[in-house]
Structure formats: structure tokens, C-alpha cells
Design a protein around this nucleic acid. Structure first.
Lengths: 121, 121
DNA sequence: TTTATATTTCGTCGATTGGCGAAATATAGC
DNA sequence: GCTATATTTCGCCAATCGACGAAATATAAA
């Protein structure tokens, strides 16, 4: 039963739901998620660890970035059922819609640097 | 989004899951649930309030008892979907099986009285 | 190898949670 | 009305949670 309650608990936080909805749009790195949610890296990292621990999401190292994505066909059917629920829910939610717009326009090369890349000037 | 996270949070506690699984067997009063879960009345009452607040369960006053039952056709489709998930999950779980056996044999007239009913002797 | 950047881990803090018992409330039965 | 019983509400406590910043780690780039 602990397994099941852990799955529900993972989905019981708004920021984790937002992360899942964003990842259902596309793969994202930690800095992109932190930028959109407006949270500290360490906080986002912890949320991602919670979701990864349930196997709802996977991480993949890519150079200096760690890309997170939905576990496309999780071995656990319960996880698949929950992800399907989340995918069909909240599609008209204002925050979710705004997050999607942000996901489309976010650029990791710009946002991740504390010292912004001087593109011109 | 608060609505959805509240639903998941309601299901993120093992005792609340046990309550739902028991109510999916039959209607129960607070003292029966408290007896099976081995928790204080006040604790069970709070768990039931959390579930009732999501409209997953309904309460019905019946004399000195308050009977709780699953909301048979909740207006909220999300609630129906989650209850369906819980119903299909955990049916082989040892605790759930034991709870079901207890639900079948529990007798509110016996367990609820601190001073047990002197049936004979 | 040094430096910059992306991420995770660690320690801390205030808020929430789940437990309890005591007190308050509601109803049944006398 | 009085008493017993079932339930809820209240106040408390320890544990967990979500947030942060600082420190540690890993990789890219110079």
C-alpha cells in the first residue's frame, strides 16, 4: 500500500503537477523548469527526485545538462494510469496553459546563465 | 489545480486508502472504522472529514450513528476516475484483505460500547 | 588545470500533517 | 430532564514537507 500512497503523494503538490504537465509537452532541463516555476534549483531538484523515485519521470545526462522526461512506457501500470489521468486533466487550467506557452518559448542557453550571454551590445 | 492536488493528497495516506477500500465493501460507521484501523475516534473522524471534503464519500446520520459510504455517482468526474482506480488497485494487498474480513465480521453493537453489552453472564 | 556552469546534497526554517486525549455536541433511551 | 453513547472539535506534540541558500559534485570550455 505504501507504493500506492507514495504515487498519490507525488501528485499532491501543485509544483510537481506543473512539472509533469510541462514534461508531457517536452523534455526539459532543471534550469528551464526552475525558471518557469520561479523556484530555486535545489527545490526543483528535490521535486524531480520525488517524481523520479516513483518512476513517473526519467533523467538523462546530456553534456552539462540533465534532461528530464516522462517515463514513456513505465513498467508499472499504476504509474501509466496516473500519468494518463494527469494528461487528460487540467488542460484548460490557466497556470498550465501559461506554463505551456513558457515551455515553447524558453531557451536554456539564455536563462541558465547567471551572467546572461551577451548576445549583442 | 488546487482541486486536483487536494484529491491526490486525500489518497496519499494509507489509513485513508484503507477507509476507502473498506467503504467500497459496504457502508460503515465511525466506530467500526476506528475499531478496524485501531485508531482513536478523533483521528478517524478527521480522516473522514478529509475524504468527505473531496466528495469521495458521503455521510448519513442514522440514529446515534453516522454512516459513511462511497459517493456512488459523484458529480465530479475526476473523483469517479480516482475511485475507480482505487477500486481496481490493492485487491491482493494483505492489509486490505484483512480489513475486508474484519468488515464482514464487525458488529457495531458490540464494539462501539466502551462498556460491552452484557449479552449473557 | 583552471574556470564557469548545471545540478545535487546538506542544513535550516516555518507550515502542514497525523496522531492522541479532553471537551463539546447530538441523539437514544430511560 | 437525565444518562449513556457516538461523533466532532479543540489543543497539543512529533514528524514530515516544501522552501531557501550554501556547499559539494560533475561536466564544458578555456
Amino acid at each position: 500500500m505504501r507504493r500506492e500512497t507514495k504515487l498519490f503523494k507525488a501528485l499532491s503538490d501543485p509544483n510537481r503537477i506543473r512539472i509533469i504537465k510541462m514534461l508531457q509537452e517536452r523534455e526539459l532541463c532543471v534550469c528551464e523548469i526552475a525558471d518557469i516555476l520561479n523556484l530555486a534549483y535545489s527545490t526543483v531538484s528535490k521535486h524531480l527526485a520525488v517524481l523520479r523515485d516513483t518512476e513517473m519521470i526519467l533523467d538523462r545526462k546530456a553534456g552539462k545538462w540533465v534532461n528530464y522526461r516522462i517515463n514513456p512506457n513505465a513498467g508499472d501500470e499504476q504509474v501509466r494510469e496516473l500519468l494518463a489521468l494527469v494528461q487528460q486533466w487540467l488542460n484548460d487550467d490557466a497556470t498550465v496553459c501559461a506554463d505551456r506557452a513558457a515551455v515553447r518559448s524558453v531557451d536554456r542557453d539564455i536563462i541558465c546563465n547567471i551572467t546572461p550571454k551577451k548576445e549583442n551590445t
